[in-house]
Amino acid sequence: MDIFASIRRNSLGLGIFAVVTAGIIATTHQLTKQTIADNIVQAQLAAFNEILPTDRYNNELYKAVVTLEADALLGSDEPHHAYLAKMDGKVTAVIFETTAPGGYNGNLELLVAIDKDGIVTGSRIISHKETPGLGDKVDVKKSPWVHSFVGTFLGENSEKQWQVKKDGGKFDQFTGATITPRAVVRAVKNTLTYFDQNKDSLLQR
């Protein structure tokens, strides 16, 4: 009987402990939920403002999001998001989430900002698995290489220009690592092509 009584006491104690722990976790989650959400928004806005000047828009950019249907030009068979920068209600630029397949160690995820005239105002690599010291130079924290896209656009000689120098284009590659910059150049060019093909519908939103 003492054994059964001990088991009941221990079970009750464990049950109370579980309820209290769950309550603490739930309370902590509720208290920090808004802070986490605010931090995510601030990080997103910081990334946006690095590639698109703040004087180009006056809307809440992170809220002006649209979902784009899967398109090969955006690099995958999954839908992508785009953010519409507006000045007094008129679209002045679009920030695309896009994918660069074919990196040395897999896909790279990018943000590409394109103004209403089809000119890149900036781009950033937001996710990659490239080799440290080689392919990771596409990351702005490692090198300024990604700034080379600022001011670029599709032109008459786009096929030739939109390649790394090793392939006859105008973009630098990295010593010992051509595959990764080649993939990023292709992705930015494809995003520009997507914008060009869908410009009317994007700017009228």
Score class of each variant (00 low, 15 high):
Ser127Met: 02
Gln30Tyr: 14
Arg182Asp: 03
Gln161Trp: 00
Glu69Ile: 05
Asp38Trp: 11
Phe153Leu: 01
Gly168Arg: 15
Ala5Phe: 07
Ala70His: 08
Asn39Glu: 11
Leu74Thr: 06
Asp172Lys: 13
Ala113Phe: 09
Pro132Ser: 03
Ile25Met: 12
Thr99Ile: 14
Val146Asn: 13
Asp167Leu: 12
Ile36Leu: 10
Thr35Met: 12
Arg9Gly: 06
Ser158Phe: 11
His81Val: 05
Asp167His: 13
Gln163Pro: 02
Pro132Leu: 02
Ala113Met: 08
Gly133Leu: 01
Tyr104Trp: 11
Gln30Asn: 14
Gln173Glu: 13
Gly103Lys: 05
Lys166Val: 08
Leu202Ala: 03
Phe174Met: 07
Met87Val: 09
Gln42Glu: 10
Gly13Trp: 01
Gly103Asp: 09
Asn198Lys: 11
Thr99Asp: 11
Phe153Met: 01
Lys189Pro: 02
Leu74Gly: 03
Tyr104Phe: 15
Phe48Gly: 01
Gln44Ala: 00
Val91Gly: 02
Thr35Lys: 15
Ala5Glu: 09
Asp172Thr: 09
Asn157Thr: 10
Thr21Val: 14
Asn58Met: 03
Leu203Trp: 07
Leu111Asp: 04
Gly13Phe: 04
Gly122Ile: 01
Leu84Cys: 04
Lys141Tyr: 03
Asn59Gln: 04
Ile125Leu: 08
Val185Tyr: 05
Asp172Ser: 12
Thr92Gln: 05
Lys90Trp: 00
Asn10Leu: 09
Thr27Ala: 05
Asp2Gly: 06
Trp162Ser: 02
Val91Ile: 06
Pro144Asp: 15
Lys170Val: 14
Gln173Ile: 06
Leu31Asp: 12
Ala47Tyr: 00
Tyr62Val: 05
Gln197Ser: 12
Arg56Trp: 02
Ala5Ile: 12
Ile25Trp: 08
Ile24Lys: 00
Thr35Tyr: 13
Ile7Trp: 04
Phe174Lys: 03
Gly89Phe: 10
Thr98His: 05
His80Arg: 15
Asn198Met: 12
Gly133Met: 01
Val185Trp: 04
Asp172Asn: 13
His81Asn: 13
Ala100Gln: 07
Leu203Gly: 03
Thr152Val: 12
Lys160Met: 00
Ala22Gly: 15
Ala113His: 08
Gly13Arg: 02
Phe171Val: 05
Pro144Ser: 13
Ala100Trp: 04
Val41Glu: 04
Leu84Phe: 08
Asp196Tyr: 09
Leu154Gly: 02
Asp172Pro: 05
Ser76Gln: 04
Arg9Glu: 13
Ser11Asp: 03
Ile114Pro: 01
Ser201Leu: 00
Pro101Gly: 01
Asp139Tyr: 07
Phe174Glu: 01
Val188Arg: 08
Val94Pro: 01
Lys129Gly: 05
Leu111Gly: 04
Gln197Cys: 09
Gln30Ser: 15
Met1Ser: 15
Ala70Asp: 10
Gln204Asn: 08
Pro79Glu: 10
Met87Arg: 15
Ile7Gln: 01
Lys166Ala: 11
Val66Trp: 06
Phe96Tyr: 15
Val188Ile: 14
Pro181Trp: 07
Asp77Met: 03
Ala113Ile: 09
Thr67Pro: 01
Lys165Val: 15
Ile179His: 02
Ala43Lys: 11
Phe96Gln: 08
Ile119Lys: 12
Val20Asp: 02
